[in-house]
């Protein structure tokens, strides 16, 4: 749905803001964009939205080139900017309807859609109040309504839940997931790895303007070299348990912690049946006649993967 090929962009600073960035955002999914401040996330969003031109490379939205057919491409994208960007003296209904009108809808349709969308986002009571008087959460909902009022097939959300309370964040996440389920391609920039893990199926990690890794969590784990851990508690004499564990380790590091045997696998591809470390089912089969009392899998969380990738990049 959104394809980014070799995009580069420089400003006056010595280091390019973006350098040879390549990834794609398929329809019907939520892709997370993670990176530290200054990594180029906002610049990338502006290029994807057709506001900035790339120095090199190509961006297509539903097949339309943002440089060659900017108006067509922009019509298919909904952009939630980092700052809500709502004029303080104007009201949500006017503002959201204006954006729908500027996207080619009739005035009546614009007003109707704006009202319906604001109400569905839970901002119905505020539609006639000036933006300056609204809470941060309501302003975020208005900004999201502005991005979605034309029902775009691709949305770019720059930190949609930043500084919001848990309930509002949860509402917005649910809304984003509903949109994705209806076929929308969503790219969400966030500084919150836990939220990204909950919301996204795919990830793009940016560092100093470059893509450090892109793909599913398992792919990222493999790329970062983060260990997966399989932890088992077996019944039986300690020496027998240890001996058994070593025999079935298949290249994984084995250590004991309290009464747990921990298999640490540096290759996360065990999920796909690779040769390093035992799978859970292999472990159960191989442990006999000892009994496995407990078994748990501890994969590296996104936060650890992200930290490793950034450390490696610097």
């Amino acid at each position: 749905m959104i394809e980014v090929e070799g995009v580069s962009r420089s400003f006056a600073a010595a280091r390019p803001a973006l350098s040879d960035v390549t990834f794609d955002v398929p329809g019907g999914s939520v892709t997370g964009l993670l990176g530290p401040n200054g990594a180029g996330k906002t610049t990338l969003f502006r290029i994807l939205a057709g506001i900035l031109r790339p120095d090199a490379g190509r961006v297509t939205v539903c097949g339309y080139d943002t440089a060659g057919q900017p108006a067509r491409a922009r019509a298919l994208v909904g952009l939630l900017t980092e700052e809500a960007g709502l004029p303080g003296r104007l009201t949500p209904l006017w503002h959201v309807a204006l954006h729908a009108t500027l996207r080619g809808q009739s005035r009546n349709t614009s007003l109707m859609r704006a009202r319906r969308l604001l109400e569905s986002l839970g901002a119905g009571e505020a539609i006639e109040r000036p933006h300056a008087t609204l809470s941060k959460g309501t302003r975020a909902k208005v900004a999201l309504a502005r991005a979605l009022v034309h029902e775009p097939p691709a949305v770019l959300l720059d930190e949609p839940t930043a500084n919001l309370d848990m309930e509002t964040s949860r509402q917005l996440r649910r809304f984003i997931l509903e949109r994705a389920r209806s076929g929308c391609a969503s790219l969400v920039a966030t500084h919150n790895p836990a939220e990204a893990e909950e919301l996204c199926e795919r990830f793009v990690i940016l560092g100093e303007g470059r893509v450090l890794a892109a793909g599913s969590l398992a792919m990222l784990r493999e790329r970062a070299g983060c260990p997966s851990r399989l932890e088992a508690r077996l019944s039986g004499p300690a020496h027998l348990v240890t001996e058994k564990a070593r025999r079935i380790a298949r290249g994984a590091a084995v250590r004991t912690r309290d009464d747990w045997i921990v298999f640490t696998m540096t290759d996360a591809s065990t999920e796909a049946g690779s040769s390093v470390g035992p799978t859970a089912s292999e472990l159960v089969a191989a442990a006999a006649p000892l009994e496995i009392l407990e078994l748990r899998r501890r994969d590296a969380p996104l936060e650890e993967i992200y930290r490793r990738l950034q450390e490696r990049a610097t």
Partner: peptide, 21 residues
């Protein structure tokens, strides 16, 4: 009162993202 504050508070960015020339 309008244009300059809008530019400073980044309120023109959504406008630039619209499919207008």
């Amino acid at each position: 009162h309008v244009f300059l504050p809008r530019r400073i508070s980044r309120e023109l960015e959504p406008l630039a993202a619209l499919p207008v020339t």
